[in-house]
Structure formats: structure tokens, C-alpha cells
């Protein structure tokens, strides 16, 4: 089981979730971030800017493991 949070404009891909509410998924071994985006969530990779897995920035080919916390972001900035 992994937990995924979709932030900012990406929230519209799972409108039933509240801001910051995780989506829990069971994944096959060897599943990458990219595959979750494309096949499970239906989010085009071009709208994704940043992915954190357990608080660490990861590329889309990163392989997810059981217990991972994943945060997915479009381009954001502030300060």
C-alpha cells in the first residue's frame, strides 16, 4: 500500500478528495511514478512538475515501494 497526495491544480483529477487527503493504492512490485500517473490516475506527465517520495525529490522513472508517501505537484512557487 502506498499513499498519494495530489496538490494544487492536480486535485481536479480526484475531486472527491479533500486538500491533502491521501489516496491509498495497492501497487504491483516495480511500479514507477510514471505508470501510476498514466495508468492509475490518468494524469498527463506534462502537467506534473515535481514528485516527492518520502520527502525526497524523485524522477518519473522512480520505482515505488510498499509504504511510500508520494506528493505530486504541478508547477508552483511562492515565498
Amino acid at each position: 500500500m502506498i499513499e498519494i497526495r495530489l496538490y494544487a491544480t492536480l486535485g481536479r483529477y480526484r475531486p472527491e478528495l479533500k486538500v491533502g487527503e491521501p489516496l491509498f493504492l495497492n501497487l504491483d512490485q516495480g511500479t514507477t511514478v510514471k505508470r501510476v500517473l498514466q495508468e492509475v490516475l490518468g494524469i498527463p506527465t506534462e502537467v506534473v512538475k515535481t514528485v516527492f517520495v518520502n520527502g525526497i525529490y524523485r524522477e518519473l522513472d522512480h520505482v515505488l515501494a510498499d509504504g511510500d508517501r508520494v506528493g505530486i505537484f504541478p508547477p508552483v512557487a511562492g515565498g
Partner: peptide
Amino acid sequence: GGLNTYGTAVLVNIINEAG
């Protein structure tokens, strides 16, 4: 865009995710 829609506090979740 991000700043116009959500304001600077759009950073809260990303900095939080990053620990």
C-alpha cells in the same frame, strides 16, 4: 497560474512534503 490562483501559500504543501 500557481501564484495567481492559490497565492504564495501554494508553497505550504510542497515544502511540507519535502520535510
